[in-house]
Amino acid sequence: MGFNEKIYAGIIATTILVFGWYLFDIAAMAADGQPSVADFGPRLWLMMGLYIVLLVAVTIVAAVTGKNDKETYDERDNMIDLKSERIASYTQGLLLFGLLVLVMFEYSLFIIAHAILGIMVVSTLIGFGMRLYYYRRNV
């Protein structure tokens, strides 16, 4: 596994772990009634902080374990980035269209804000998942 693949796998795992925990926690909170900003605010900050710390840790681990990889970023990496981002953008566009439905049915700002967060998480996962897929398939 090359340096890029390690980074992408790490980002996917971190994203699933941190946002999964947060969204699961928030969903449980929302089931008991509409939580206020004071209820979920600290969790949101904790999640953001944890995500940044884990991403830095992933980068350090990948750099240390792959220090012998004489790899650079070349035209194929660029092509894989573009292809993956295109798929992630399509997904994001489609999901944002779904968000309009939530707005039309006048869902609360809490639901809409977390739906936006969810859309960002899903498109990030798809973007990096596709990168990993292309690298693994040796495209």
Binding site: G2, K70, E71, T72, Y73, D74, E75, R76, D77, M79, Y135, R137, N138, V139
Partner: peptide
């Protein structure tokens, strides 16, 4: 290393899965 690309790219080109640019 000689042409400033990754080993993965060379593998992909050798296997015919990726067509390099004219410059490459």
């Amino acid at each position: 290393e000689k042409i400033g690309m990754t080993r993965q790219t060379i593998i992909a080109v050798e296997q015919g899965r990726y067509s390099p640019s004219l410059e490459a």
